[in-house]
Amino acid sequence: MNNKILNRVVFIAIVTLVVSCKPKTEEVIVDKEQIKIEIQAIENKMAELFNDRNINSEEYYAKDATSFSQNKPPIVGKLAIRKSIKDDLANFPSGYQIAFVVNEVHPSNDGIQVVEIGNYRVSDSTSTALYTGNFIAVFEKREGKYVCIRDMSASDRPRLESKTEDKKE
């Protein structure tokens, strides 16, 4: 009988030890709407910087970001992306404005990464839409704030055919 009691006590002690040593997982609650608001604020700031032609102060991209733009090879690194944007802005007519709209966000289960699907609109000084496009961006939360680590955009403008292609027809 003492053996049965001892076996039960040992069994209960082992079960208690195993249960108490099990790592506790914290459930992370991801507020998709709040993340969408955060990402839209980032996009609004980026549009403001574009429209002010002041890309030097932007904090949109991570240092190790890669941007995929039309008719260009991938642009790797925050400094290279900044230079590419500056070059693009040099050809962006005065008075033109851009706006970015977040259509969807798809956060990871822990909210650390977010895939954004959005669109943009370029308008002239009278707010007449000149052209639009779409983009996908991947954000990662670093040091408490989201930064873009990858993005890709596509314009809705028809592709301009080159004179060489016209001659082939």
Rank of each mutant, 00 (worst) to 15 (best):
I37K: 13
E26S: 14
A137V: 04
R121H: 00
S57V: 09
V115R: 07
M46Y: 15
K72G: 00
V28R: 05
N56I: 03
P23L: 13
E165F: 08
T128S: 07
R142A: 07
I112W: 01
V147H: 12
K36P: 02
M1N: 14
I85F: 01
G133S: 00
Y131C: 00
V101N: 14
R82D: 09
D88I: 04
P74F: 05
D156H: 04
I136V: 15
I149P: 10
A154G: 13
N56Y: 03
I112E: 14
K86T: 08
A80M: 09
F100A: 02
I75E: 03
A80N: 15
S162C: 07
S20F: 14
P93F: 01
E116D: 11
L6V: 12
G111A: 06
V105T: 11
E169Q: 15
V101Y: 12
E140Y: 06
E58D: 10
V9T: 13
V147W: 08
T132N: 02
V114N: 06
I37V: 08
E165M: 11
D124A: 03
Y96C: 03
P93N: 05
N109W: 00
R142C: 08
Q97N: 14
E27I: 15
V18S: 11
D87H: 06
I5H: 10
Q113L: 09
R121Q: 09
S153R: 06
S108E: 07
D52K: 13
S162G: 15
P158G: 05
K168L: 15
V30R: 04
Q40D: 06
R150T: 12
P107L: 05
E104Q: 14
I42S: 15
Y146D: 12
S67F: 07
N103Y: 00
G77I: 08
E58T: 10
N51M: 10
V115E: 05
P158N: 08
S125F: 03
V122A: 05
K163Q: 06
L49W: 09
K63C: 06
E59C: 08
N91H: 09
R82C: 03
D52R: 09
G144S: 11
I85G: 02
T126N: 13
L17E: 05
L160V: 13
V30M: 04
T16V: 15
N91P: 01
N71V: 01
G77R: 09
I112R: 11
R142N: 15
Q40M: 08
H106M: 13
F11Q: 14
K141E: 13
E43M: 14
N91T: 06
N71C: 01
N109I: 06
A154P: 02
V76H: 11
E161M: 13
I37Q: 10
S155E: 05
G111S: 04
N119V: 00
D156W: 01
L49K: 10
K4M: 15
K63H: 09
V138E: 09
N51D: 13
A41L: 13
I37S: 09
A99V: 12
A62F: 10
G144I: 10
G111W: 03
Q40Y: 07
F11E: 14
G111E: 04
Y96A: 00
K72A: 02
D88T: 06
F68C: 02
S94T: 08
N51A: 12
Y146C: 12
E116T: 02
A137L: 01
V19Q: 06
I12M: 14
D124S: 05
L160T: 10
